[in-house]
Design a protein around this nucleic acid. Structure first.
Length: 203
DNA sequence: AAGAGCTCCAACCGCGTTCTT
DNA sequence: TAAGAACGCGGTTGGAGCTCT
């Protein structure tokens, strides 16, 4: 096992993808379909690992990928969803058509994180501590079973249901303004027009 | 003009979960 | 049932391009 790992590391190509590699991967997937990434990496002739192929496809080559800056609506949704779910990037991205988890994560880390932390600072000056303040309903430690699973596909909906059950999500949101500082109109969920179904239209 | 510092994003890594044999 | 393979996730890093001095 270690030997194979060693071999993989030394023989697998890394770094930025070249346009030719993109073309190869795209045309291979066009004809054979996606999935079975290890096989794709072997048969396509690309000297890339399966993981790398999958990532490239998912984050860049897949049809309907939206490029370019986030719209204010998207920004807003990300902020809200992050407040709700924490760093569950794939779930958040699942509600933003054409956006990938990687993109959302990068966007958060580079743009919104700063914004929100400066906001947070303002907020804490005026807001009394509440058990809900700045604690996402779905923090990363509640991650019992994330996505995962070969062949399981995305399965985000199922996962969502599961964690909601696990964390007694709806019991929590039934209490008045449960999720965050009531006192801070600037924060996420206080917006009266905000509906939970905005984030979970499937429910 | 140049080089130092910074920003941002693509890609990698390690880990947990699920599937397959 | 156990072990290994495959997959998906979030965290982190590297480097290209931009800005500042």
């Amino acid at each position: 096992m270690e030997k194979r790992e060693e071999e993989r590391k030394t023989h697998v190509k890394r770094g930025l993808w070249k346009p030719e590699e993109d073309m190869i991967l795209r045309s291979y997937i066009d004809t054979h379909g996606e999935g079975n990434w290890a096989d794709i990496s072997r048969r396509s002739g690309l000297k890339r690992g399966g993981k790398s192929c999958r990532l490239r496809w998912k984050n860049y080559l897949r049809p309907n990928i939206k490029r370019g800056g986030m719209t204010p609506q998207e920004q807003d949704l990300i902020i809200r969803m992050h407040k709700l779910l924490g760093n569950r990037w794939s779930l958040i991205a699942g509600r933003l058509p054409g956006r990938t988890d990687n993109e959302v994560k990068n966007y958060w880390n580079t743009h919104l994180n700063k914004k929100s932390s400066s906001r947070k600072q303002n907020a804490t000056e005026s807001v009394e501590a509440s058990p809900w303040v700045d604690k996402p309903v779905m923090s990363t430690e509640v991650r019992g079973s994330h996505g995962g699973g070969g062949g399981g596909g995305e399965g985000e909906e199922d996962t969502t249901t599961t964690w909601m059950e696990e964390t007694n999500f709806f019991a929590r949101i039934e209490s008045p303004l449960p999720l965050t500082a009531h006192h801070n109109p600037d924060t996420l969920l206080f917006d009266p027009s905000f509906a939970f179904t905005d984030c979970f239209p499937l429910l």
